Computed example of a mutant assay.
Amino acid sequence: MTRPNDQARLAVLIDADNAHAKYVEALFVEIAKYGTASVRRAYGDWTTNQLKSWKDSLLDHSVQPVQQFSYTQGKNSTDSALIIDAMDLLHGGTVDGFCLVSSDSDFTRLAARIREQGFEAYGFGERKTPKPFVAACNTFVYVENLIASETPLSPTDKADWKHDDRLDALLKEAVTTAARDDDWAHLGEVGSNLSRLASDFDSRTWGFSKLKDLMSAHPAYEINPQATGEGRQKTVMVRLKAPKKTR
C-alpha cells in the first residue's frame, strides 16, 4: 500500500562506524520530509572510544545502538549486521522505505535490492560517497548540505555553479522534458524530472536553498509565476531564455 509522504514509515539504519554524529540532528529534520522514522538504529562497536561522540546523539533522538563486535581485523562486521536487519525489515512488512546513512559503497547492492522490492531507498552520506551507491538510491542527500547554513558558501564557491556542465545538462533536460507547447514548464515537474535524472540532485549543493532560487539566478532561464485555477494560486513556471539575436 502506498502512503502519503507524511505517513510513510521509514527505517533509519546508521552505519556509525562510517557516519559522523554531528549530522544527526539535521539528518532527522531532513528525514521528516520523507516520512516518519519509526525504526532508528545505529550500528557499530560501542565498546570502543571511536563512537564516544555518538552517545548523546543516540539518547536525544531515540536511536537504538546495535552492538557489533569486530571479530576479525580488517573485516567490517557492522555492514553485515545492518544489511541482515534491513532484509528482515524488508520482508517484515512494517516499513515503507529505508534511510541508509553511510558513505560506504558496500551498501550499493542493498539499496538496489530495496528499490527492486518496490520500497523507497534514501541515502545519506558525504560527498566522498562512491557514485554507484548514490545512483542505487531513489534519493541521495549529501550530509554537508544539511548544515550548509552553519558554514555558508563563499562568493567564489557560489560562482562555480555557473560553469558546472553537469548542472547545465540536467537543468536543460529537465526543463525541456516538462515544457508545454509554449516552452513554459511547471517548476514542480522540473523538480520531479531532476530527481529522476540524478538521485543526488539538490539545489543546496550549489548554495541555493530552493530550486526556484537556483533557476531564478541561472542566466539561461527565466521564471514566471502564473495564477491558475479557481483559487488563483500562483504556479511557478520556468523556461529557457530565447537566444539573443545577432545582427
Rank of each mutant, 00 (worst) to 15 (best):
L27G: 05
V95E: 05
T47H: 03
V29Q: 15
G118D: 15
H61D: 07
N76T: 07
Y34K: 00
L194W: 01
H61L: 13
T72C: 10
E173R: 06
P65S: 08
V95G: 07
H91K: 12
H61I: 07
D182C: 09
A21I: 01
V63C: 02
N5Y: 11
E126C: 05
P243W: 01
A19H: 06
S80L: 15
V134F: 00
H91L: 13
S203T: 06
V190P: 04
Y23T: 12
V190K: 00
V63I: 15
T47P: 03
M237R: 03
T78P: 09
N193A: 13
G123E: 08
E126W: 00
K33Q: 14
D182R: 09
Q64L: 09
V12N: 05
L214G: 04
H91R: 12
P219Q: 06
H20K: 14
W206G: 00
E189M: 12
T108C: 04
R239L: 08
H20L: 13
S57C: 02
G97M: 05
G92E: 05
V238Q: 02
S154W: 06
H61T: 03
K52H: 11
I223L: 14
K22M: 11
D200M: 01
E126D: 11
R196H: 10
I84P: 05
N49H: 08
R180H: 08
Q50S: 10
P65W: 02
F69R: 04
A19S: 15
E120D: 13
R115V: 11
V141A: 10
Y142H: 07
I83R: 05
F124I: 06
G231P: 00
L214N: 01
D160E: 13
T139R: 14
K172T: 09
T156W: 07
V63H: 02
A178C: 14
W46L: 12
L153Y: 05
R41H: 11
H186I: 12
D160V: 10
N76C: 08
A16R: 04
A159K: 15
T78D: 10
L240A: 15
K22W: 00
W206Q: 01
T246M: 08
R239D: 02
G35K: 06
N224P: 07
